[in-house]
Every structure is written in structure tokens, then in C-alpha cells.
Amino acid sequence: MILNKLYFILPLILLVNSCTEGNTSSAVVDGDVETLAAVDTTGLAQATFASGCFWCTEAYFERVEGVKAVISGYAGGEKPNPTYEEVSAGATDYAEVVQVYYDPEEVSYQELVEVFFATHDPTTLNRQGPDIGAQYRSIAFYRNPEQEAIIRTYIQQLEESGAYKNDIVTEVQPFERFWEAEAYHQDYYRRNPNDPYVVSVARPKVQKFEANYQDKLKPEYVQ
């Protein structure tokens, strides 16, 4: 179990930058974008989480040993074919999510749930740092009763341990459908290192994750 909480409160000065205000108009788009169709996910297990801006969430899980692919997208809503413009404007019921493809022989679903809770604040309703709105709400999606039990048990453990001053507001929902986000969102953190949001918000959080959880990282991220 991850005992140390990663999430920390950013200085107020960082509130000027949000995921919605990122440099999407000039985002790097090149030939190495790994969309869902381009990734061989045969035989891999899946997990889906919403924990704020998917640019950050994707970067965390990409670093975890045993995770083979992470795709940014949308889930938790009903409208077919949602777009980033609709979701980021709060015009749908969707949340920004990541779809994690992993080898369960290398990393367990339990460990992914622990990473999920360690990398965001599950006590803030419809908000993560400078990102405000239901599209940034905390959701753990489950695909079977076993996954649901793991999520609910871990939430109970966190609450009983007093890890958080406030109540956990993370939604626990059955997974229904994932819509892949536009190509320029995929691997956004790596491919847009100079984006103001990446520099001021995402990078400090990702670097702290790397520093605190060396035992969970792929070799290339171990310091």
C-alpha cells in the first residue's frame, strides 16, 4: 500500500494556468503519436481513471513499471463522440480520463489504484488544483466486481487511516465506454515540455511522483 500521499497544494500563483488554457493551438503533433488504434493491447488488462487534467494523469501512469500504454480520453458521459472543446467547456457529463493498458503479472490493479489516489486530491469536488469543473472530477471506473471491491476497500482504508482531513469524494462507477481524445492530447506532457501548464503545474507534480515512488517506476525513470 502506498502510505505517503503525493498530492500537494500548489502556490496560488500557479492558479493562472489551467489544463483548458494549455497551448493546444500550437501543440506538437508529429508521427509518433500513439493512438489507441496504433497500440497492440492484445492480452493486456485495462484500468480507467479520472483525476483531473489528463495531461498529468497520463504522465504518471506512463512511468509505472508494467504499464504498456496510456491513452487520454473521455468517459462517464452519454453523448456520442465528445470533443475536447465540449468536455473542457463543461458542456457534457464526461470527465477527462486515461485508459491504462497493463500487464497484471508486472503490476496489479491494486497498485494502479494506489497510484491513482497518490497522484491527486480525492477530497476536492469537481476540482484538481487550477482545473475547475465536473470534467476534472475524481472517478475510479471498474470493469468487474473484483475491481470494484479493490477500489471501495482502499477508499475505506484511506478514510479509516485519517490520510485526509476531508471526506473522499471519488466516484466509483462501472465502466461503460471510453472515447479516445484528439491526437494532440496523447503523450502531451512529453511532447510539449514548454507548455505553460506543463512547466508550472504538471512538471513539479510528475517530478515529485518520480522522486517519491522510485520502486514503482520503469528503469528509465529511476534516478
Rank of each mutant, 00 (worst) to 15 (best):
D32S: 15
D32V: 11
V33D: 02
V33F: 12
E34L: 15
E34D: 14
E34N: 13
E34V: 14
E34A: 14
L36N: 12
L36A: 14
L36I: 11
V39L: 13
V39F: 13
V39D: 05
D40E: 12
T41F: 03
T41H: 07
T42G: 08
L44I: 05
L44R: 04
L44F: 08
L44H: 05
A45S: 15
A45Y: 10
A45Q: 15
Q46P: 00
Q46L: 12
Q46R: 15
A47L: 08
F49W: 15
S51T: 09
S51E: 10
S51Y: 07
S51I: 08
G52Y: 01
G52F: 06
G52A: 03
G52S: 06
G52W: 01
C53H: 02
W55V: 07
C56R: 00
C56Y: 04
T57N: 06
T57E: 10
E58A: 11
E58D: 15
A59N: 01
Y60H: 12
Y60G: 00
F61A: 01
F61R: 05
E62D: 14
E62S: 06
E62C: 10
E62P: 03
E65Q: 14
V67W: 03
K68C: 12
K68T: 09
A69N: 11
V70D: 01
I71F: 06
S72K: 04
G73E: 03
G73K: 05
Y74W: 13
Y74C: 05
Y74V: 07
A75R: 01
G76Q: 03
E78T: 15
K79P: 01
K79V: 14
K79E: 14
K79G: 03
P82A: 10
T83I: 10
T83S: 15
Y84C: 10
E85D: 13
E85T: 13
E85C: 07
E86V: 07
V87T: 00
S88P: 05
S88L: 04
A89C: 11
A89F: 08
G90P: 01
G90K: 08
T92F: 08
D93I: 05
V97N: 02
V97H: 04
V97W: 02
V97M: 09
